[in-house]
Structure formats: C-alpha cells, structure tokens
C-alpha cells in the first residue's frame, strides 16, 4: 500500500479578471468577472514508504499547489489525495501528526527566542517521548552542527544556520512524510551539502518518505532516486532519475581549445554550441559517433590543443525539455504509463 496516493488530481483557481481604469474598477466591485486557471491538471502518482522523490518543474508549474493539497492546506477541485490512509484536507490535524514540512523562507522557529525553546514546543506538541527527543536532538546536533546554535536567539542566526535548525525542527518528531519546498534556497554550498547529507541519512535510517521541490537540481541529483517532472500542471515524466538521464541525456558536451582555424567548421553528427577565437563547444551523442571520429573531423579545420568532456547533467536535460527540444517526452510518458 502506497503511503501517498494521488488520483486524477485537479485544482482550478478562480481569479478575478481586472479591468483597466476607474470604470473597470467599479464594474469589478459590482459584478466581478472570473477567469478560471488550472494549476494542477489531472495528476496521478503514488509514492511508497521511504522513497526520495524530487518534484520538479518551472515556476508556476503547479508544484506548490500539489504540495499544499498533499498537506491538506488546499482542497482539490476534483480527484483524490490519500496520505497514509487519510484524506488530508478532511482530517488535517490527524494528518499533521504524521508529516513535517519546510516551506521556503517561512519558519516555525520563534524569532525572539532561543532555538531550543521552539524545539521544546515541538516536543510537547507532538508528544515526543523524552528519550526519543534526546536521542534525535543529539543526533541532529551532530549531523547539522547545531551545538552552538541551540541557545542562540533565532533572530541572531544567519540564513544557513536558521535553515539547519528549521530542518532539524521538521524531522524532530520522526514524521513519516516530509515535504521540503525549496529547503536550500539562498544557501551556500557547504550548508546545502550538509542538508542533503542529513536528508539522505535520516531517510536511510528511519525510512522517512521525502518529497523535495527545488530549483537547485544539484539537490535532486544528490538526494533523489525518483523524479516527477511537472509542466503546466501536468506530469510529463515520472520515474527513476537514472532512467530519465539515460533516456534524454544520451549526449556528451565537449569543450575544445583550438588554434589556427582555417575554415568554417562543419561537423557531421555533432552540433556546435559555441565558437569563438580558440574555443569550441560541441554536443554529440554516443549513438551516432565517437570522440575519436569527431576529433579527426575537427583536426581538418584546426589544431586541437586541449579537450574537456562532460556528461549531460539533469540541468542540461531539463533546460532542453523546457525549451521544447524533447517534444516526445509527453508521449513517451503516456506510453510508459499504459505499460504499467
């Protein structure tokens, strides 16, 4: 039995259509015109206990709306959400006991008080047994390096310190499911790494289900096993991260330092992305050619001094998908779903 089950989920907002000018303003007051906007359009997925899922998409793709429906903060227009056997928007308090959530910059820590006070409140709210609380606190303090922060007032912490405390607060009551909405926004590399490692460690040890939405794809690359890709309210990919990369990222990007360019360089089976005085950036697929063949070709036009290659990363692939290069993504997904 899946811990999260989402079926035919739809969320439509009514927005008041604003008209220009003073007359428009009064018209709106008397008889507002509504426009419908579908933020989430027939979304289906199910998530098993202990999965690390990256829920990704552009701004406005419907990620946060989905998360809000999963937590019970929003009522779906149609469709079903079942989390841990409960319909969240009907039994919100019941559902809240099983979940933890980080929403970007909003905090559950009390601004004027030492961090530990907020932790104590969480302990009492969730009725965490004393020994459990101590054990978790000790462990989190080690993993997230909180030792010196606990007695400090929240307002005196830096963004990174605050987020480390926030993450610890979210996991303190051993939630079954954790929703992380942009947990690493605005943080430096070290803090990001610490948080990612923490999420992975806790997931391994406690089988916590984690749903992560982020714009930093390094987070996904590092933490998640599965990705759900959302575009304009619809899922366009749902499956293993590795498979996603294998399917859409079967190409390599090579940067070459060259000199004595004789002619306009024309290559078969490879695409030139960038070219200036002595630098050349190309993209090719392993299916079609090899690096040796390409170097052969290039050396007809110039001397190669150095070469640097990198595999396609999630970020490159997603950029292409957003740009509409892989128009077949949607269709592929539809067929794979049918297969299941």
């Amino acid at each position: 039995m899946a811990i999260i089950e989402v079926k035919n989920l739809v969320k439509t907002y009514k927005i008041i259509e604003k008209e220009e000018g003073l007359i428009g303003y009064f018209k709106n007051l008397v008889k507002p015109k509504y426009k419908e906007f579908t933020a989430v359009n027939n979304v289906n997925f199910s998530i098993e206990k202990g999965e690390l899922v990256g829920y990704i998409g552009e701004n406005g793709a419907g990620k946060s709306t989905t998360i809000k429906m999963l937590t019970g903060l929003l009522t779906p227009t149609s469709g079903n959400v079942i989390v841990n056997g409960i319909i969240p928007n009907q039994k919100r308090i019941e559902n809240n006991k099983n979940i933890g959530a980080v929403f970007g910059q909003k905090t559950q820590l009390w601004w004027d008080l030492p961090v530990i006070e907020s932790f104590r409140l969480i302990k009492k709210m969730y009725k965490i047994p004393e020994n459990e609380y101590r054990k978790n606190l000790k462990k989190f303090t080690e993993l997230l390096d909180l030792e010196e922060l606990l007695e400090k007032q929240v307002k005196n912490l830096s963004l990174g310190q605050k987020m480390r405390c926030e993450i610890a607060a979210t996991f303190l009551h051993d939630p079954k499911i954790v929703y992380l909405d942009e947990p690493t926004i605005g943080l430096d590399v070290f803090v990001k790494e610490k948080i990612r490692k923490f999420i992975k460690d806790i997931n391994r040890e406690k089988k916590t289900t984690v749903i992560l939405t982020t714009h930093d794809l390094k987070d996904i690359e590092d933490v998640c096993d599965r990705i759900i890709l959302l575009d304009k309210g619809q899922i366009i990919y749902d499956g293993e991260k590795q498979k996603f990369k294998d399917t859409y990222g079967r190409y390599v990007i090579a940067e070459l330092i060259v000199n004595n360019i004789k002619d306009n360089i024309i290559l078969n089976n490879a695409e030139i992305l960038e070219q200036n005085d002595n630098k050349l950036k190309i993209k090719f697929s392993h299916d079609e050619t090899t690096i040796v063949k390409i170097m052969d070709e290039i050396s007809k036009f110039c001397n190669i001094e150095d070469i640097h290659m990198k595999e396609a990363e999630l970020e490159d692939i997603l950029k292409e998908i957003y740009k509409g290069v892989h128009t077949n993504v949607k269709n592929n997904d539809a067929t794979s779903k049918n297969a299941i």
């Binding site: 903060l73 308090i93 809240n96 006991k97 929403f103 909003k106 905090t107 709210m125 969730y126």
Partner: peptide, 14 residues
Amino acid sequence: RTGQINKELLNPLT
C-alpha cells in the same frame, strides 16, 4: 498577512 498561517495550520493542534 505573511502566509505564516500555512505553517501554523500544519501543527498537530487546532
């Protein structure tokens, strides 16, 4: 006003 309420509505008490 600040949307902090979303966080408070996720507490395990009303």
